[in-house]
Design a binder for these strands. Structure first.
Length: 431
RNA sequence: UCCGGAAUAGCUCAGCGGUAGAGCGGGUGGCUGUUAACCACUAGGUCGGGGGUUCGAAUCCCUCUUCCGGAGCCA
C-alpha cells in the first residue's frame, strides 16, 4: 500500500492508499461519517461507512475531532455528488492524537482572537491559500531576476547606520561598538555588489520602527532590492514592469485554486498584465488636483491620492521625476531639472497602493556629498558608500519591492497582516 | 503620535435603568450522502479594571487598560 498526498489522489482511483494529515471538519449522519481531511497539499472528503468498514473501525473514526491528527487508509473514488472531485472511501483510521477543544471554530472570529491564535489560524483554508501565493510570488520574483542576469547578494541585517530617515530604526547594543540597527533596506550595500557582479538582488526581512497603524504596514516585512550597473532611469522602470508582469502571469498560472478560495477577481489581474502607465509627479499632481485633491506640487501622495491616481486604470502606474526634497538623498538629480530626481514609485491598481520604490542613483561624488551635507548626515559613517563614487563610478539604478504589499495586491486580501506567517505590528509581537 | 469606534459565555454578537440571552463551539443521544449538515437535551457568566450617580447599573457619568478602524510616514 502506498502513502500518497491528497493532491495526487486522481492517479490512484480504485487502489487502496494511505493519507497522513489532519481533520478540518467532521459531519456525521448515523452510520455515515464525513471527514474533511487535509494534508497540506490539498483537502478531500473522506467517507466512513459503518457497514463497510466494520463496527470497531467506525467507532475509532467517530472519536475524531476538529484538527485531530490521523492516518486514513481507504480507496479513492469519484465524488458521488460533485463532478470533477474525489473522495476517499475509508477502510481504517489510525488516530495519532485527538485534538480537544480546538480554539478556532467553524464560525466567525474577530481579528484580535485570530491574531492571538496565528499559530493555529495558519491551518485555515484561506491562510493556506495565502501562504501558497506568498511562496509563488517569492519564487516568481527570484525566477525572473535569475533569468535576467541578477545574482543573489545578501545584504547585512545588522547595520551601523540608517538607509532612510533615522527616526524609524530599531536600535540595539552591539558589544563594545556602540549602537547597531536592524536594516531598513539592503539597498546601499547592494550598490557595492554591482561593482563586482554587475546586477544583484537581495531578499530578506527589513525592519521599520514607524508607529504606523494601517492595513498596509508591518514593522518587519520582506523586501526584495535589486540593483544594476549601467542601467538608467527608464530602463530601471522597464525591468520593474517586466518583473511585475512575470509575477502576475506566474500567480495566475500556478495559483488558480488559491485565488478562487480567496475570491480574487482574476480578470483584474489579467488586465494588469499589459503595458504600465507612466506619468511624472508634476502630471500626477495636476491630474489629482483636477479630481479634487488638495495636493501641492512639492507634496508626497497621500493614501487617498494613491487610490485616486489609479482610479479607472487597470494597470499599475509609475510616478516618476519627484521633487528632490521629498525623496531620499541617494537619488540622482534630473539633468533636465535641478529640482527633480530620477525616482519612480509604482502604484498598484484597485487601491492597493505603492508596491515599488526605485530610482537611478546619484553616481557623482560631489553631487552626492553636497546632498548628504545638506541633510546633515554623518559622513564618516557613510564613507564606504561615498567610496563607490570614487573608484570606478558608473550610472546605476535599482528598486525595492515590498513582498507583502505585492502579495496583498495579488491575493486581493484586505489587510497586509494576513500575507506573512507571523505579522509584526506596532501593538503585536505574539505569537 | 493624532482622530474615531469597541470591550457581555471558549468564539461571534444581541440586550442599552428593573430576575443575564441567542447562534456556533463543548458534552449526551438520534439520523445511510452530509456540505459552516441537521434534530433533541445539557453544562457554561465577578457583563474589561477602578470610581461615581441611582431605591436599583451590563445599561448613565468619570478614569485606566486592551483591541479595532483611519491619518501622517513608508514598501
Amino acid at each position: 500500500m502506498q502513502d500518497i498526498f491528497v493532491k495526487d489522489i486522481a492517479q490512484y482511483l480504485g487502489q487502496e492508499v494511505r493519507l497522513k494529515g489532519w481533520v478540518r471538519n467532521i459531519r456525521s449522519s448515523g452510520k455515515l461519517l464525513f471527514i474533511i481531511f487535509r494534508d497540506g497539499s490539498a483537502e478531500i472528503q473522506a467517507v466512513a461507512f459503518k457497514p463497510e468498514m466494520g463496527e470497531q473501525a467506525f467507532e475509532e473514526a467517530k472519536r475524531l475531532t476538529l484538527e485531530s491528527s490521523v492516518i486514513l487508509t481507504g480507496v479513492p473514488q469519484k465524488h458521488q455528488k460533485k463532478t470533477g472531485e474525489y473522495e476517499l472511501s475509508v477502510s481504517s483510521v489510525q488516530v495519532l492524537q485527538i485534538a480537544e477543544n480546538y480554539p478556532i471554530s467553524k464560525k466567525e472570529h474577530g481579528p484580535d482572537f485570530l491574531l492571538s491564535h496565528r499559530h493555529l489560524w495558519l491551518r485555515s483554508t484561506k491562510q493556506w491559500a495565502l501562504l501558497r501565493i506568498r511562496h509563488t510570488v517569492y519564487y516568481a520574483i527570484c525566477e525572473y531576476l535569475n533569468d535576467h542576469g541578477f545574482f543573489r547578494f545578501d545584504s547585512p541585517i545588522l547595520t551601523p547606520n540608517a538607509c532612510e530617515g533615522t527616526t524609524t530604526l530599531f536600535e540595539l547594543e552591539y558589544f563594545d561598538e556602540g549602537k547597531a540597527y536592524l536594516s531598513q533596506s539592503g539597498q546601499l550595500y547592494l550598490e557595492t555588489g554591482i561593482m563586482s557582479l554587475g546586477r544583484v538582488y537581495d531578499f530578506g526581512p527589513v525592519f521599520r520602527a514607524e508607529r504606523s497603524k494601517t492595513r498596509k504596514h508591518l514593522t518587519e516585512f520582506w523586501m526584495m532590492d535589486a540593483e544594476a550597473a549601467y542601467v538608467e532611469h527608464t530602463e530601471n522602470m522597464d525591468i520593474q514592469e517586466n518583473l511585475i508582469r512575470h509575477v502576475i502571469r506566474t500567480v495566475l498560472a500556478k495559483c488558480d485554486k488559491e485565488l478562487d478560495i480567496l475570491e480574487r477577481d482574476k480578470s483584474a489581474l489579467q488586465a494588469a498584465d499589459a503595458p504600465f502607465k507612466r506619468m511624472t509627479h508634476y502630471e500626477a499632481v495636476e491630474h489629482l488636483r483636477s479630481k479634487g485633491s488638495e495636493i501641492g506640487h512639492n507634496d508626497d501622495l497621500g493614501a487617498a491620492d494613491e487610490t485616486l491616481i489609479t482610479e479607472g486604470s487597470q494597470v499599475p502606474i509609475f510616478i516618476e521625476k519627484w521633487p528632490k526634497q521629498i525623496k531620499a538623498f541617494y537619488m540622482k538629480r534630473d539633468p533636465d531639472d535641478d529640482n527633480l530626481v530620477l525616482g519612480s514609485d509604482l502604484i498598484a491598481p484597485e487601491g492597493f497602493g505603492e508596491i515599488i520604490g526605485g530610482s537611478q542613483r546619484e553616481d557623482d561624488y560631489d553631487q552626492l556629498l553636497s546632498r548628504m551635507q545638506a541633510e546633515n548626515m554623518d559622513l564618516e559613517a557613510y564613507q564606504w558608500f561615498l567610496d563607490l563614487r570614487k573608484y570606478g563610478s558608473v550610472p546605476h539604478s535599482g528598486f525595492g519591492i515590498g513582498l507583502e504589499r505585492l502579495i496583498t495586491w495579488m491575493s486581493g486580501v484586505h489587510h497586509i497582516r494576513e500575507t506573512i506567517p507571523f505579522p509584526r505590528m506596532i501593538y503585536r509581537i505574539y505569537p
